[in-house]
Design a protein around this nucleic acid. Structure first.
Lengths: 348, 348
DNA sequence: GCAGATAATTGGATCGTTCCAAATTTGTCA
DNA sequence: TGACAAATTTGGAACGATCCAATTATCTGC
């Protein structure tokens, strides 16, 4: 009764079989007789038995059915949705996940990964904190645990990757703004000297060049990749001698900030200024004006990441693979293309 | 070498001591000689030893240093921040957390809790899915695992609770709007027949009654507790024969939706209509207009929840406690009190 | 140099499961 | 009924750490 937890031995005794048989029932082996199985199952229910996965994991075979997920900023809805996507797949696959936030601190990230490792994760999905080095992941990959870097990369690390097609997405978005008649198009928000920033600005630059428009460096205004960062960036943009009439923003959070900043200056986003975001977070659709944005589908990307990792775990030892998640421009209202053909109006 | 993982026995052999000594070193016991400790520590580093917590947890004493967190909607930034707050405390305390999203499904919630239990969590923080019953938590509490319900309650469950003071917060918010001169104040958004909804509308009603203003039921417009729900609710509100001039919204997400809906109808929130939210999510401060809201401080609440749970885990067997997290009205711009005393202007 | 204390170390036995080889039961057919 | 195969069941030895009781090394003071 109160003598600690119920174990297979207790079940065995109560059902009048051996612990081996109980074990076979637990893993629904076809070897056991139906009558026995029924009897054991009943006893398991009656005694309120709880399977002890920790004990099972002791034997060096079989995976722990635990994976680790570490993201750099869970308060950003992009990452929250990414996590939700992963959670869905993991739940259906019968896995549980340690989920932690590194808050852009490589130290916290290192600690939390170490802790997860001690608990025996069989795989790790990491959206690395800024400044993560290949060495940080070395021991993990050396011990044969599949690691998947998402969203951002870790230079030199031999891990699988899943990134979105930042370059193509930015190209498309800027191309669309050019098609609407814009000639001075800024790139607002985001921390410079990150790979993602470099890729998105490269797309911005090449789209302008392709259209024969000079891509002037003062139209690239970095800041934090947040709502507050967007406000700050657009403020500076509007103070330029020749201010832009539209902008591709580093991400949706920054884009919302840009909208806020425009309104604070008496300009209505979508009418007086074209705004395009990046990510397509859930609020993008319902915001006013609805945000035109490069849809990365964070939940979908999360699901895909989870599937990739599970595949690698099941495959035993697979070579790292690099996948780019294609993106697509979702035209809504904030770019000024909202049905009434009003884009050119802004340029008057 | 490649013969599986490195264990205490390997360390012991390499360092020329017994596994018991290695174990003592691992738990930094004062019993071991400094020289020995140094030698063992060096070997541990050299061989790349990884502590196997699962093995240690087998012995019935000692906690697993794992807790479970299950929230009903991680895509809502309120819960994401709540989770981040918990994560902070847990990380510092040397715990890791399973973090999962129930997406308001009691089935998923049940499964994920069962799974966490098999993995040996030593405590659970739950923001319950709608429809959670006391029976769902019964086995968990019966086995002596501390459970803490946050944000929402589970009627009849003998667990600790941490809720925000919904009634007082709503009272304050509505009182403030009345002070600004409003007489027709709506309550917008949120799912009716939840406890939180009942508490907030009760505060709304009593504040109106206290001021001698009749609290008419058609001013309470329920919908989902999301941005989209806010848009829908304010649309209906503005179609009333005698439309409101201000509103307390169920939460910040709904409040942002209300702002969107107002703009869609050509009304500027904060100037033409007073809007007050509830939660004080991170975007509330930087939105335009900055959202006046009842600050629950989700991160702080998360930290507090984590501390409560840890306390109970360490206390061994503590009685469930019920704590209400006090809230405070943060006056920003969306209510129309933004410095220029313009509130009464809306009523002209 | 030796008793007595203190410091440091060490073999098992144990936790709850899985897995293997071996044992037992049941079934089939001549 | 006996021989053989197939279907079930079962002890015990892992897995990797902890903890207790017992042992050995080191230190006192005289």
């Amino acid at each position: 009764m109160s003598k600690g937890r119920v174990t297979v031995v207790d079940i065995a005794r109560a059902a009048g079989v051996s612990k081996s048989t109980v074990s076979l029932v637990l893993q629904s082996s076809p070897l056991v007789n139906e009558a026995t199985r029924a009897k054991v199952t009943a006893v398991i229910r009656d005694l309120g038995y709880v399977y002890n996965r920790g004990a099972a994991n002791l034997r060096q075979s079989a995976s722990s059915r635990i994976i680790g997920i570490v993201v750099n900023d869970l308060t950003n809805s992009f990452f929250a949705e990414l996590a939700v996507g992963m959670d869905m797949v993991m739940q259906s696959a019968g896995y549980v996940q340690f989920l932690s936030n590194s808050a852009e601190s490589v130290d916290r990230q290192r600690e939390v990964i170490a802790s997860m490792r001690e608990h025996g994760i069989s795989g790790l999905i990491l959206s690395p904190a800024r400044g993560t080095e290949a060495a940080d992941l070395k021991p993990l990959v050396a011990s044969g645990i599949p690691v998947l870097a998402v969203v951002r990369n870790v230079v030199g690390a031999k891990v699988s990757t899943l990134f979105s097609d930042n370059y193509a997405g930015a190209m498309d978005a800027v191309g669309h703004l050019i098609g609407l008649g814009h000639r001075r198009i800024a790139f607002l928000g985001g921390m410079a000297n990150t790979t993602v920033f470099a890729e998105r600005t490269a797309g911005w630059r090449d789209a302008l060049n392709k259209a024969g428009i000079p891509a002037s460096d003062d139209l690239v205004i970095a800041s934090t990749a947040s709502r507050a960062g967007g406000v700050a960036a657009v403020e500076r943009a509007l103070q330029l001698p020749e201010p832009p009439t539209a902008a591709l923003c580093f991400n949706d959070a920054a884009a919302f900030g840009v909208c806020d900043g425009l309104r604070a200056k008496g300009k209505e986003p979508g009418r007086d200024f074209g705004v395009v975001g990046f990510d397509d977070v859930i609020e993008a659709e319902t915001a006013v004006p609805a945000l035109t944005t490069v849809s990365v589908d964070p939940q979908g990307m999360g699901r895909r990441a989870a599937q990739m990792l599970l595949k690698q775990i099941n495959a035993g030892r697979a070579e790292p693979e690099a996948i780019v998640n294609s993106v697509r421009l979702v035209v809504r209202e904030s770019c000024g293309a909202g049905g009434n053909g009003g884009a050119r109006r802004m340029l008057a």
